[in-house]
Design a protein around this nucleic acid. Structure first.
Lengths: 232, 232
DNA sequence: TAAAAAAACTGATTTATATCAATTATTTAA
DNA sequence: TTAAATAATTGATATAAATCAGTTTTTTTA
């Protein structure tokens, strides 16, 4: 973890969140002045459940995971992931004062931290911005809710197939996961034991639905995975 | 189901959603003109998964349940509930064109239906309204996500205890459930079989944690229920 | 580069929970 | 008001998945 040397103006940020396009140059300058950009190494904790909400985070680079800790972090459920261009903490706006879920870096990450007071101020002053934020929130939370509702309805084979497809489509945006994603991550995302994950991934491999090499996962037969996701 | 005879002006609505307090008299008149108020009998379907999104609903009276249908509604997972003063369909705003979850009346209900185009127009024009809506969305979705994340982590006794507490606190707003809530509703809300629900409620009854009489459920020992919810 | 730690894997066993198959009670409808 | 339908209940049985206990492989660190 460390501060970024070059505090880029948000105007010049290549992959800023869609909602920021509704801000004026003046407003973006305010954001630039209030923000800090921070690097996190793979595995580092970005924010911690139970602490005070002070900022909205913007993922500039890397994949982050949002997770709920149980029993003093002995057990964990992964709630969702955030990738470049996405904001973290939107559901806290105007509501939560305590952070509900921890966030950590699944890969090396660069994250911008924006003062939540400023973010809320901009929302009240700029209706277009508010509309953009509503869009973001709705996309994020709808996906999260639907994933878990579906996941919990399925049996284990269906859960893994479903998770593979969702990760490919919504998170890694590729049929090849070039991201370190452990058996335990699968387990914590799908509510199952890591041993069961191992067993099912093995079956999927021998059935040529996926390939696993050098820590990379490749989806070979998405149609069959879709089918297992539905009926499994 | 039937139309309400008296189309009350939203200004005079006793329990309107908090966000409507940000609308001007003129804006509220527009809402009044566009809305229809409808009565639903217990059990009737209010909106159906898979159809087009055309409105935002406002619960004026009664309790509604939001649920996902699987396998042509042979199986169901209850996502959440909405009570008087709450809006239904907020996550569809600016995003979904197809309704993701069905909604039905758990009790006799009165529901206002507001054209979603008008709702979206008001959001772009009135920043205060947008802020109010963000608040509502965040409250609703945070509760929903957290309920299911917690539910799925727990074993069956914990699930029922947790569900009882959440229903009491967030939905029925009373330690006595004066609402018809079947074993099957419990099962569909907590992802378990209705036989398991029966067995666990029986244990809770004999342990004097709850009382069940005339279809009413009363929470007798919330402290113990909290404990079971945590460790169970 | 070796040692230590973490992750992946495997088979045997246990356990929580669903399913099955009835019976009884309660609603709803005719 | 009775018949029909739906919901609640119960015990016996089946089974999916977790846990346990270990081994092997991979990754990290010293």
């Amino acid at each position: 973890m460390g501060n970024s040397e070059n505090q880029l103006h948000c105007l010049d940020c290549a992959n800023k969140a869609e909602c920021f396009s509704h801000l004026s140059k003046n407003e973006l300058t305010k954001v630039t002045d209030s923000k800090v950009s921070i690097y996190y190494n793979k595995g580092e904790i970005i924010r911690k459940q139970g602490t005070f909400v002070s900022s909205i985070l913007f993922v500039k680079k890397g994949i982050t995971k949002i997770y709920k800790e149980f029993d003093h972090a002995e057990n964990v459920s992964i709630v969702d992931f955030r990738k470049p261009g996405q904001l973290i903490g939107l559901p806290d706006i105007f509501t939560a004062s305590i952070i509900q879920y921890s966030v950590s870096a699944l890969t090396d990450c660069e994250v911008c931290s924006i003062d939540i007071r400023l973010f809320e101020k901009l929302l009240t002053e700029n209706g277009g911005f508010a509309v953009g934020v509503i869009k973001s929130i709705n996309n994020q939370t709808s996906n999260t809710i639907d994933f878990h509702i579906q996941n919990n309805y399925k049996q284990l084979h269906g859960r893994i197939a479903h998770a593979l497809l969702v990760l490919s489509k919504n998170v890694f945006e590729s049929d090849v996961f070039n991201v370190p994603f452990t058996r335990r991550d699968f387990a914590e995302f799908t509510n199952m034991s890591s041993m069961s994950v191992v067993r099912i991934l093995k079956i999927f491999r021998s059935d040529k639905l996926i390939e696993m090499k050098d820590g990379l996962i490749t989806l070979l037969d998405k149609a069959k995975l879709e089918h297992i996701s539905r009926v499994g």
